[in-house]
Design a protein around this nucleic acid. Structure first.
Lengths: 398, 398
DNA sequence: ATGAAAGCGCTAACAC
DNA sequence: GTGTTAGCGCTTTCAT
């Protein structure tokens, strides 16, 4: 459990009114200045880092320093010569205030730069914090970035704010984040579970009204609303397509089987072959974390021997791209279908089983808000379809 | 330094006291069901959407419904037969509690599933909300996704939570988000400004202590800390590289000039040509929003006529990819350098001026936390370098 | 070692 | 129309 104290030094603010001269130079945290940050050019450096202090301009005040405390409604009330409640009425557009009183209050609000503290308001109201959170592996990953974007859009349409967190595939981080979010009393959570986790710790939160929807992978140890992709169906379609092109030796290069989606996709491969009455040659099945060396090795084995694979199925876009690199280096061109679309798949003319990450995020967030609105149907598990996008890489004859 | 751990034990019992039935059924929200959501397959549908209600499992309780209210410290105190303050001490690891009292309280905490409300705590403490926010165009864009990821990482190292928002290049959205975040009293804001905005509305917030750092583009109307990329330098390097390859007719295809970075990049193009003593042929300069039709038209003009361009400079990765598509369709191969790296640039063998979005996010967030820690240097403007990554697309002879 | 009371900034429920 | 009082869930101050 992370410490609770916020990241500012204890001596930052002396009590109440007085503001201390904060000659703060924290030693507690790593203090990476701009110059020390890893922003220096690597490789063919073209330019140099420049820091200019243009304090010549219109705002001579340093960014921090002596901060006037934020005015509260009470401050506004006093300055306007009215009661706190009158200010509250004006701020919230409630009736029961004369136009001129309202105007006077509004003036003071503008002059003081008052802005209502929503945290305090929501605490008082108690019903909702108007915020949800999502936790996923890595927002920098295009797939999750798109999923996240969809969650943000749905939240915006409900006028909710969104907290974000990356688990880095680490169930411990995931749990810490989820608990931190719950401590902030988010109304709901969209979680892409890290592999190997156990979500029973969420039962208490859920029972107390925190809505939780899992996305892309199912929860472990609890029953919860879940949005999944039809992984096996997607791979089955890919296999059938390749079989239809006349291929009979299909290699499968997938991600580590500890990942849920990876299991489903491999299962789809086996199912489709079985369905076609074909045996699975285990020498053509490769799964591991998608490192270059793994892909290199797998391709070497798959494309060698007396009965080499004529077609390749890659289990995610990372593997697909690594495979494309390898194939170019080897100057080989087996038929290829990749699971999961990627930015340049069209340009590279690669056939893919496209998922729709935005649809996952949208479905998850929508279900979440349905639950928050009182939807009490039984727990839902939604399977989203994939779409086979046929391009040149799979239509080469064996 | 309080060590918070309200310790949520997995074992959950009912809060045996009152289980208020607040059968909430708010009608206030729009109630879009899963089926109504736009998740139905488009195009070559391969599978169908499936919704299964597996209520057969261990948790027959519907997700929402009768929620026992969250226990407060007072609830814990009563159940443990101690005072509120004693619970507070236990929860925060403060001294002054007997081991056995502490144990008793801890037991009750576990039994009731108590979790401290951090929003309330932070409101009371008043110093910080332990949260920052970022606003950028679109988290789904790989560039911003990476930038966002870096912000999240820095925030995590300070044990801060992060709110996220997308402006969609709309200054009105940006302002609404910024104000909503300020109303929640975030400690700081990282903003990638939407073009055409005016940030003077932030002056009041900044004066009251909200730290703000702008990233990738400068603020308008105010002085503020800003992290920028050396756009013109990057393009200059690209131009020099192409000149070095013997090219003399370089076309420039850039984004809309209302975008700050677009102006800088075009300026770099002009500067580098001037520096080389070459005139700028305005018929080879094209800027507009990166739509396929714009790129098609621009290429038609650039590559036609008696003196066609032999080399192409694209102002961002969107344009680069569109141009690559067009060039393939036309079966033409002018030399090409793209500004901004993209996922498959290596695979496509495209020379790029690489930015480092993670460095931008890191620098912005680091500066933000420096400010929060009391750093009162004058306003900073940081220029991050780019890196010319030379690949095959630019080494073809004219 | 423990607890009572006040109050963070706001809204809800009543006064007047 | 306007103001007063209480209290959200917690921490702080000061008592005992």
């Amino acid at each position: 459990m992370p410490r609770s104290s916020p990241g500012c030094s204890p001596e930052m603010f002396f009590a109440d009114k007085r503001r201390a001269e904060m000659a703060v130079r924290q030693e507690g945290y790593e203090h990476r200045g701009i110059h020390g940050s890893p922003t220096t050019p690597i490789g063919t450096s073209v330019e140099k880092t420049t820091v200019s202090s243009d304090s010549s301009a219109s705002s001579p005040t340093p960014p921090t320093g002596t901060r006037p405390p934020r005015p509260t409604m009470l401050d506004v009330a006093r300055a306007a010569g009215v009661s706190l409640k009158t200010v509250s009425r004006v701020v919230n557009g409630e009736p029961g205030v004369t136009a001129e009183t309202a105007q006077r209050v509004a003036d003071v609000i503008g002059r003081l730069g008052f802005r209502r503290n929503d945290s305090a308001r929501l605490l008082r109201q108690g019903v909702s914090t108007g915020s949800i959170a999502f936790i996923l592996e890595d927002v920098a990953d295009p797939f999750y970035a798109t999923l996240a974007r969809a969650v943000l859009d749905v939240a915006r349409s409900h006028e909710y704010l969104v907290l974000a967190g990356c688990s880095d595939e680490n169930p411990v981080f995931e749990k810490e984040l989820a608990q931190a979010f719950c401590a902030r009393r988010v109304d709901g959570l969209v979680i892409v579970p890290a592999p190997g986790g156990d979500h029973r710790y969420l039962v208490a939160e859920m029972r107390m009204g925190t809505a939780v929807v899992f996305a892309d992978r199912p929860a472990t140890g609890i029953d919860a609303d879940t949005i999944l992709v039809d992984n096996s169906g997607g791979v089955r379609a890919a296999v059938q397509h390749l079989l239809g092109q006349g291929h009979r030796r299909l290699a499968y290069l997938g991600d580590d089987l500890r990942v849920f989606t990876s299991q489903e996709r491999l299962a789809g491969y086996r199912e489709a072959l079985a369905q076609a009455g074909l045996p699975v040659d285990e020498r053509l099945v490769f799964t591991a974390r998608p490192e270059p060396e793994f892909v290199r090795q797998a391709l070497t084995e798959a494309l060698a021997g007396p009965e080499p694979a004529t077609a390749l199925l890659t289990g995610n876009s990372r593997v697909t791209i690594l495979a494309l690199h390898q194939l170019r280096a080897r100057n080989e061109q087996p038929a290829l279908v990749g699971f999961d679309d990627f930015e340049s798949a069209e340009l590279l003319d690669v056939t893919v089983v496209a998922q729709d990450p935005a649809a996952i995020g949208r479905a998850a967030a929508t279900l979440l808000f349905d639950r928050l609105a009182g939807d009490s149907r039984p727990i839902q598990t939604v399977r989203l379809p994939t779409r086979l996008v046929v391009r040149g890489s799979s239509t080469r004859r064996p």
